[in-house]
Design a protein around this nucleic acid. Structure first.
Lengths: 239, 239
DNA sequence: TTATAAAATTGGTATGACCAACAAAGGAAT
DNA sequence: ATTCCTTTGTTGGTCATACCAATTTTATAA
């Protein structure tokens, strides 16, 4: 096989400008809160058009490095501790509809997972699930179900499908949901009845998987997630 | 306490343009891989300057939604791409079993998609699907179904679910399959009977979606993909 | 000193022009 | 008929200029 080459990335003028600015921020020449020179000044100093400078500033603004105000100039923002948000996360938060799309996605995928888990689960996996279920029971007695346990329970079901790719996929979806919703289930299902309902759902799901009854496992999971989505809608989209 | 007011966020023209474009991506008008109209066209259609359009495209490119190539136009990128695909790719190469896992994944996801498409499809989307179906019929008469048309057909079904995240997700699954298998369906289903079987499957699926019959659409898709997986296994894993 | 108004500054948009990279169409060689 | 190459039109990248809109600064008046 011939040697491979890296693709040549032609750098646009605007990117060079952006690069120089970020460099100045890195080396401390430009500090947080500083106002940049005006676009006209920058274009003259760097010997490029104002268009290119504007495009550069636009890029930096999209990265959260700058904030520009109409008529007021551009100032360096504080990005310490500010997580660099992934593109897909930005896309999701642009429209609340996306959150429901995610929930929808999760619902049918987990329904399938429950079915497959019922068919393929090993005794070991069943034991682990039973452990989590009992932990949830104890937590319920003491007060409230903890989200982490609930999460582990669902993850174990995913693992029991013995489909590694699915496991990876659903993990990604979980993290996206966590990010976009920004609240944990604990803060949504606070009432005693809600908690009990969820616990009952999980008991049913466990039953189905334990008895290797795919249909029952699937329907129980569907019921569970339909409830979760419904409550979620009520809470965040008031309908 | 005096009543509080939300800050008025003055939306720049470029942001309105970007918003309209993302909206088109959401509702499925623009799909992964599509080329946008040229900047000049967009500016004329929307009645804004090319400057504003360019700034909008720049924003979307920064978010990873677009990729623009000098002289080549701007194409819609897969939003889930970076996050999901990379880690899995390495995984797949390790074991041929992963390919079957992918097929399994695809099967139940597309079954859901067929069901949802039957419920949510618009007349426009149905028309597009019909076009692809007829194209496949003609190709069949002339010799062989082309994989690209088959792919477009399935993608259109995904779009008709009106779940953007799913659309991007399934796109990834497709590319993963192509990546791992490295052969096209054309090379698997060569016999006249196989081709006819597939064509009949697609007719059934279309019927279900056309008549807005979720159950029929889902079962037809299941039948189709079960066949595909079975033949695939025979060919590559000789069992 | 404070309040108001005017002027200068700065970002936002529009237009037109030109260059560079790409893609499709057409033609030449095989 | 196919392949390869050239040509030509299209598309993105950059520049220059002008004007509008929001802000900041300065000047002015009370």
């Amino acid at each position: 096989m011939p040697p491979t080459f890296d693709p040549i990335r032609v750098e646009r003028v605007s990117e060079k400008v952006a690069g120089q600015l970020t460099k100045r921020i890195s080396d401390g020449t430009l500090k947080v809160g500083d106002r940049l020179p005006s676009e006209r000044d920058l274009s003259e100093q760097m010997g490029v058009s104002r268009t290119s400078v504007r495009e550069a500033l636009q890029q930096l603004e999209m990265q959260g490095i700058l904030e520009t105000v109409h008529g007021g100039g551009s100032v360096i923002r504080n990005i310490t501790g500010q997580e660099i948000r992934k593109p897909i996360e930005r896309f999701i938060e642009q429209d609340k509809k996306r959150v429901l799309e995610l929930a929808e996605l999760r619902a049918f995928m987990e329904a399938w997972a429950a079915r497959e888990a019922a068919r393929n689960r090993t005794g070991q996996e069943l034991e682990t699930m039973r452990g989590y279920l009992e932990e949830m029971e104890r937590d319920f007695e003491k007060g409230a179900i903890r989200y982490e346990v609930d999460f582990k329970y669902h993850t174990e079901i995913a693992a029991a499908t013995h489909n590694t790719i699915y496991l990876h996929l659903i993990d990604n979806i979980y993290s996206l949901i966590n990010y976009s919703v920004k609240v944990h289930r604990e803060e949504v299902f606070v009432s005693r009845e809600d908690q009990e309902t969820i616990l009952n759902h999980h008991r049913k799901i466990y039953q189905g998987i334990c008895n290797q009854d795919p249909d029952r496992a699937e329907s129980a999971m569907k019921e569970h997630l339909a409830f979760v989505v419904r409550e979620f809608k009520r809470k965040f989209f008031d309908n």
